[in-house]
Amino acid sequence: MVPVPSSQSPAPAPMLVDAHGRTIRYLRISVTDRCDLRCRYCMAEAMTFLPRSALATLEEIALIAERFIARGVTKIRLSGGEPLVRRDVGELVTRLGLHVGAGLDELTMTTNGTRLREHAPALAAAGIRRVNVSLDSLDPDRFRFITRHGDVAQVLDGIAAAREAGLAVKINAVALKGLNEDELGDMLAWCVREGHDLALIETMPLGAIDEDRTDRFLPLTGVFDTLAARFPLVRDSHRTGGPARYWRVEGTATRLGLISPLTANFCDGCNRVRLTTEGKLYMCLGHDDQVDLKGVLRAEGIGALDAAIDLALAGKPKRHDFRIGAGEAPAVARHMSVTGG
């Protein structure tokens, strides 16, 4: 793939503002719904993935992303599934990386880290400066149980490779009752020693899995109180454009972020939309409304994307509708890997 010459690009269009007055500056892109792990809170063990014929090409993803950049999006996160399992994803990273400093402030990636040893140097060379690595336990046996077959040593080696390549690392950990709640303090201590930031996330009711998420739901309100008793946490005004609220471990470079979709709704400041690997634009993680941008691009060409995007934004809801409780159905049927984290 090569960048589209500016002479072939549609004229600039107005900034992206939804019906509630929120300006959209952040696009998350799932490049694949596939993953080489099967985390219990995210996927069923026997997953049925989308047929490859249903996916948007990397060229189509790039064209759509570039239209968002032209309309004021300043941050793009590539995710999945596991983005590094998609063949030639490096070409997409390289193309979007050309926009960093030329409309795009930041290009980042969320990964499970299993393939970072192989890909970290190329990601850094393409313009990525930070990666989020999903890591729910440092204990080998516990990590293998949560992921069903993962090797934590492989992920830790990938994190080391990322640091060697000059990438900053944020650790994402889902707080899981009865699985890792006794380890979250040690996780933060490890992040302090290693110089990583840490984001703790409440489990999200997306897609059917083999367990009842209620059994594993751990409110971050209680987790924060436990951590605050152990660490000198001071409120931090840092913002990345995402939903986390931040604290800093005083005297260190480590920030603690809390992402609490169930106990602390963060929708009022939402500046995000999500593009799926099928080329569908979802305005909210917790709703099913979407516009098929891939279909518009194929049927009508790049010049029709602006009207389709505006139509989507007009329907962006004010809030998500996440609920969790015994017997409660998932908020939406699609899995997180389809929409992108």
Rank of each mutant, 00 (worst) to 15 (best):
R248T: 15
R193S: 15
H238F: 14
M187L: 14
D186K: 13
F231I: 14
E181F: 02
P232H: 03
L227R: 06
M187P: 04
G207H: 03
G251Y: 11
G242S: 00
D210A: 10
L227N: 06
D210H: 06
F231T: 15
H196D: 14
T252Y: 01
E183P: 05
A228G: 06
T221D: 15
L188E: 07
L179M: 12
F224G: 11
P205E: 05
D197H: 04
D212Y: 03
E181R: 02
R213P: 12
G178L: 08
L198S: 06
S237M: 01
V223K: 02
V192C: 13
L200F: 11
A244Q: 01
G242R: 00
A208K: 13
E202G: 05
E211I: 12
L218E: 12
A244H: 02
L179P: 03
D225K: 07
L188I: 12
P205D: 09
I201Y: 00
D197I: 01
L206N: 09
E250I: 00
R216Q: 13
V249P: 01
R213W: 05
T221C: 11
L179R: 07
V223C: 08
T226C: 13
L179S: 11
G195C: 05
D210K: 06
D236F: 02
T221M: 10
T214E: 12
R235H: 14
L220C: 11
G195M: 10
G251K: 06
L179E: 14
L188V: 10
P219C: 12
G251E: 10
P243S: 09
N180R: 04
P205T: 09
L198R: 07
V223W: 05
I209T: 12
R213Y: 08
T214S: 13
T203N: 07
M187H: 06
E194K: 11
I209G: 06
W190I: 11
G207W: 03
P219G: 06
D182T: 10
G185R: 02
P232A: 02
F224K: 15
R193K: 13
L200C: 03
L227H: 07
A244W: 00
L200E: 09
D212K: 03
T240M: 01
R235K: 14
L218W: 08
T203S: 13
T226I: 11
S237Q: 06
P219Y: 03
G222E: 15
W190L: 13
W190F: 14
D236G: 06
V192F: 06
H196T: 15
C191K: 03
R213D: 09
P205A: 07
T252S: 15
I201D: 04
L184K: 05
R230T: 11
R193A: 15
D225N: 09
V249Y: 11
V192A: 05
T226Q: 13
L198P: 07
A244C: 02
Y246R: 01
W190K: 08
R230W: 03
W247L: 02
A199C: 09
T221Q: 13
V223L: 11
A228I: 07
P232G: 02
A208Y: 12
A208V: 12
R248D: 01
L218P: 07
D186G: 14
L184P: 10
